[in-house]
Simulated scan of single mutants.
Amino acid sequence: MFAAFCLTGCSIRQTAVNQMADALAKSGDTFARDDDPELIKAAAPFSLKLMESLLADVPEHEGLLSATAGGFTQYAFAFVQQEADELEDTDLAAAQAMRLRAKHLYLRARDYGLRGLDVRHHGFGAALNQDPARAVAQATKEDVPFLYWTAAAWSAAISLAKDDPALIGDLPKTEALIDRAAALDEAWDAGTLHTFLISYEMARNGGAGDPAERSRRHFERAVTLSGGQMAAPYVSYAEAVPLQRQQPAEFRRLLEQARAIDPDAQPSTRLANLVAQRRARWLLGRMDELFLNP
């Protein structure tokens, strides 16, 4: 009877853990609708650590792995890397320390994404190391969130690792992941894949044609898929092309378009728009430094 009681207790606990994991896996929707980025900045670390704690009990919970990969990626970009960029002009050492922290957070996110892909496809990570193209070929449309968050986090870490040749050497893996995601479901999450590819195309090795033209096509598709209600495509394209080509008027026009979007018009993307608009304002305030003839 005691053994049966213990088994029942363990079963109840496991059920409770699974239910909490299910709830946390969906908590990003609540965060995404919030109108106070500073509140989310303060709350996110506790939520992320709780996710990690639950993953110790349910290590193969796909929803929780995806949410944790996405959560760390978004937190690192919105609240660590962006703040490092803003701090650089006044405190270079602090900015460098924050970028190092952002890199570590991105790699943490990448590892959760890879774990999720391994759960869905046994041995995926090892296969990716051996032959990226062949590894991603087994992915299906249901894998797109894992493919995206893994590629986004990994690419962001690489962008902050100019002194890490081993990490830079992982670029073919990130490219295989994001290209497979786009091939499977290019419209996923209202054009998020295209928004990522806006900047990626400008750095892609061996791409066909003019990288700025490829970037422009992704920008236009991202705007179409988002109904023009997302600020991120405008900010990404402004930094990717007009900034690099020293076109201040176009740069300003795109960022003003990003700022003009009403975050409340689409509550499910309110936080993402507020974060992107913050970057737009910061970039507009630096035009004298970014352009020879602003």
Rank of each mutant, 00 (worst) to 15 (best):
S11V: 12
S11Y: 13
R13L: 15
V17R: 13
M20V: 14
D22H: 10
K26T: 13
S27Y: 06
G28P: 10
F31A: 07
R33D: 07
D36A: 14
P37M: 02
E38M: 12
I40H: 03
L48H: 02
L48G: 04
L48C: 05
M51T: 02
D57A: 12
D57L: 10
D57P: 03
P59G: 06
E60W: 00
L64Q: 03
L65Y: 00
F72S: 01
Q74R: 09
Y75R: 00
A78Q: 07
Q81T: 11
Q81S: 13
Q82I: 07
A84E: 07
D85N: 09
E86H: 05
L87R: 09
E88Q: 09
E88M: 11
D91L: 01
A93D: 08
A93Q: 08
A94H: 00
A95T: 01
M98D: 07
R99F: 05
A102K: 01
L105S: 02
L105E: 06
L105C: 03
Y106T: 01
Y106N: 04
D111N: 15
Y112S: 05
R115Q: 10
G116P: 03
V119R: 06
G123T: 07
F124W: 07
G125W: 11
L128E: 07
L128Y: 03
N129K: 14
A133E: 12
A133Y: 02
R134A: 15
E142T: 08
F146V: 10
L147F: 11
A152K: 03
S159W: 05
K162A: 15
K162P: 14
D163C: 07
P165E: 06
D170C: 14
A176N: 08
L177K: 13
D179P: 09
R180I: 06
A183P: 14
E186F: 14
A190M: 15
A190K: 15
T192M: 15
L193V: 15
L193Y: 15
H194A: 14
I198K: 08
I198F: 05
E201H: 15
E201A: 13
R204F: 09
R204K: 15
N205Q: 12
G206P: 10
G206L: 06
G209D: 02
E213S: 10
H218P: 01
E220G: 04
E220K: 04
R221G: 00
T224H: 05
M230H: 12
Y234H: 13
V235P: 02
S236A: 14
A238E: 01
P242K: 02
Q246A: 05
Q247R: 10
E250F: 01
A258H: 04
R259D: 13
A260V: 00
I261Y: 05
P263K: 04
P263Q: 04
D264G: 11
Q266D: 11
P267M: 10
T269Q: 12
R270C: 05
N273C: 06
V275N: 06
V275P: 03
A276K: 10
A276E: 00
R281F: 08
R286M: 11
R286F: 10
M287K: 06
M287T: 08
D288F: 04
E289K: 11
P294Q: 14
